[in-house]
Design a protein around this nucleic acid. Structure first.
Length: 614
DNA sequence: AACTTCACG
DNA sequence: ACGTACGTGAAGTTT
């Protein structure tokens, strides 16, 4: 037995790594007692983060309570692996920090189905996020094990991840390769593996006490754990990449990027990704750059370059000036480059041996509670079908996309009790048309509706006339007039904004959402409370829809949540019926305001919903 | 690591 | 008193 000592918050703690069968029996004895006493903290060490990549290995499985950690050398197989699996099957209650990762690792590499662990798991990361959802960049301490342990367990608790990186480097490995290459019984590796469960075990009661102290709605805890399980199930399933389509697509886009890059090079721009080079070359051609970035450099983004290339926001010729050839080349080179690398090539490199992408779906990611998805799948171009065409439904299936209709506006109407909005929505009216008619009369144009829509969204985001004008393309005077009329028409929005800001100020700059979620506000932009309230409540409507859909047996078809949409893959012959079921699951009522959903049944590829042939 | 840009809801 | 676009993930360049 390898035995290591450490001191946490003044208490001596022990890390044990069984080597012989007798050592493993000692583990089993400890486990039986600890398992009867209370929750067991669980963690794994693996060769990396790409759970579905070939050659991926589960190296250790750790079990622990507040004082003892046991690091089982799973990689050695035999009894080491058997004892770990047996313990996992026998656990009554477990604590994991960021459970989805370990669920999926153990599901894939230890044969422990996620479905057996999820119902007995408390995820300390979920608890921490319900206390403060902010990332360090957003002003919070973050939800990593290190910062949380420093705050709640021991300010001197080591940063086990960073500490290991240093060890890796000292051994001649890198941050990436070290996880796979470090000798299994390296003392620091075992110590830190053990500390992670000791810290998690100590974190859980502290976080629970804080949730009680802050009076956070208890129902949020099981709700978030259910969503974590549903999202992890979708992650495990993954999405199919059409290799035969994606491979040539990546090549074609790379060629396009190179061709347009060569044009830019003729004008002195060696690298189109360098704003400084682009700005200098454009200035040298006599173009006047006026907009500046936060740091004072000249801005040369798409909004600046499109008009210079005489293109509108849809890349159509305006006919207002001679197009600047460099601006045009930079725009095209950058778009082809981004689409090629961030999407097409990434699909291929992210796909597993079965051509499936398993994006990390974080159900509780943004400070508003919104979900996030990796591998670019939340940001695929929607203006064109070429990229989405590469993602396909299962063989014999078609793609179904069901989305809420104008959900954030409906949420605003419900939360701010906007009388005329509620009346219109209850009568089944199209909200933006309704607003346009009230503002511009019966003969309002599609442009008027667009302006009404842009102003409504601007209201939710907290935008001003200038920004809304830039977004909608409408003249500033029209926008200013519409904004004024909007306030007159729906006075409850401004009143709710003031009320919510006041509530937040009186509650330590934390707004409590409709579902009881804590939403910290930035003091200098408290106006954003309207956005936070709407975005957060809309996220919880999607969360509820995911849960309802699972209860209706739809989970096997679900592939991805996308803020106001559920993407699914379903057998072609049942697709219409399943689409109607998704609509039912997403149809609900928020304080008397109908929340409605609309399903679209496509062909084999996601691109079919964006104009692709199939 | 910071900055800039670009893709989405 | 007035006005402020919100939230993400990913890639490339510069420091």
């Amino acid at each position: 037995m390898i035995e290591l000592q450490y001191v946490l918050a003044g208490d001596p703690v022990r890390v044990h790594a069984p080597e012989t069968d007798a050592d493993l029996d000692a583990f089993r004895e400890w486990f039986e007692r600890a398992n009867a006493r209370g929750p067991i903290a669980v963690d794994t060490e693996t060769t990396g983060l790409q759970i579905y990549s070939p050659g991926y290995r589960l190296r250790t499985v750790q079990f622990g309570d507040a004082n003892d950690a046991w690091v089982l050398l799973y990689e050695r197989g035999g009894h080491h692996a058997e004892y770990a699996r047996e313990a996992l099957r026998r656990c009554r209650e477990i604590l994991i920090h960021n459970a989805a990762f370990d669920w999926l690792v153990l599901d894939r590499h230890a044969g422990i189905p996620m479905e057996t662990l999820a119902p007995i798991t408390t995820d300390t990361r979920i608890l921490a996020t319900l206390i403060d959802p902010r990332a360090p960049a957003g002003g919070g301490i973050g939800t990593g094990l290190k910062p949380l342990s420093a705050k709640w367990v021991d300010p001197a608790a080591p940063d086990t991840q960073n500490g290991l990186t240093k060890v890796f480097n000292a051994l001649g490995f890198t941050k990436e390769t070290g996880w796979a290459l470090i000798p299994l019984t390296h003392k620091t590796y075992l110590l830190y593996a053990g500390l992670d469960v000791l810290l998690t075990a100590r974190l859980a009661p502290a976080l629970r006490a804080e949730l009680v102290r802050l009076d956070v709605r208890p129902a949020l805890v099981p709700y978030e754990h259910t969503l974590a399980r549903i999202c992890a199930t979708m992650q495990r399933r993954g999405l199919l990449v059409d290799q035969d389509y994606a491979v040539p697509l990546a090549g074609r886009l790379a060629e396009d990027a190179e061709r347009y890059g060569a044009v830019a090079a003729r004008y002195g721009v060696a690298s189109v990704g360098s704003p400084a080079q682009v700005a200098e070359a454009l200035a040298g051609m006599g173009e006047r750059l006026t907009e500046r970035t936060d740091s004072g450099a000249f801005k040369v983004d798409k909004a600046v370059l499109l008009p210079m290339a005489d293109l509108d926001r849809d890349w159509q010729r305006i006919g207002a000036r001679d197009p600047n050839v460099l601006a045009d080349a930079v725009l095209r080179a950058k778009r082809a480059g981004k689409w090629g690398t961030t999407y097409a090539a990434a699909f291929l490199s992210n796909a597993d041996a079965d051509s499936r992408i398993h994006p990390t779906i974080s159900p509780l990611a943004a400070r508003t509670g919104r979900m996030s998805v990796t591998a670019g799948l939340h940001q695929l171009p929607s203006s064109d079908h070429v990229i989405r065409r590469a993602i396909i439904a299962e063989p014999g299936h078609v793609v179904i996309s069901t989305d809420f209709q104008a959900v954030e506006m409906r949420v605003l109407a419900a939360l701010a009790k906007v009388r005329r909005m509620i009346e219109a929505l209850s009568a089944g009216e199209d909200l933006h048309s309704f607003t346009a008619e009230l503002l511009f009369g019966k003969d309002f144009t599609p442009g008027h509706r667009k302006l009404a829509k842009g102003t409504g969204l601007g209201k939710i985001y907290g935008g001003g006339a200038i920004t809304i004008a830039r977004q909608t393309g409408a003249p500033i005077e029209d926008v200013q007039r519409t904004l004024k009329a909007y306030d007159h028409l729906y006075p409850e929005i401004r009143r709710a904004s003031s009320r919510w800001q006041r509530q937040a100020f009186q509650n330590g700059m934390v707004f409590i959402s409709a579902t009881g979620r804590r939403l910290p506000l930035d003091r200098d932009r408290s106006y954003s409370v309207v956005n936070y309230a709407c975005q957060s409540a809309a996220r919880d409507l999607l969360g509820q829809a995911l849960i309802t859909a699972e209860e209706s047996g739809m989970l096997e078809y679900m592939r991805l949540p996308i803020h106001d949409e559920i993407l699914a893959s379903a057998p072609r012959e049942d697709s219409e019926e399943i689409a109607r079921e998704f609509e039912r699951c997403m149809t609900m009522n928020l304080y008397g305001v109908p929340i409605t959903a609309d399903a679209e049944v496509g062909g084999r590829s996601w691109g079919s919903l964006y104009g692709a042939a199939e």
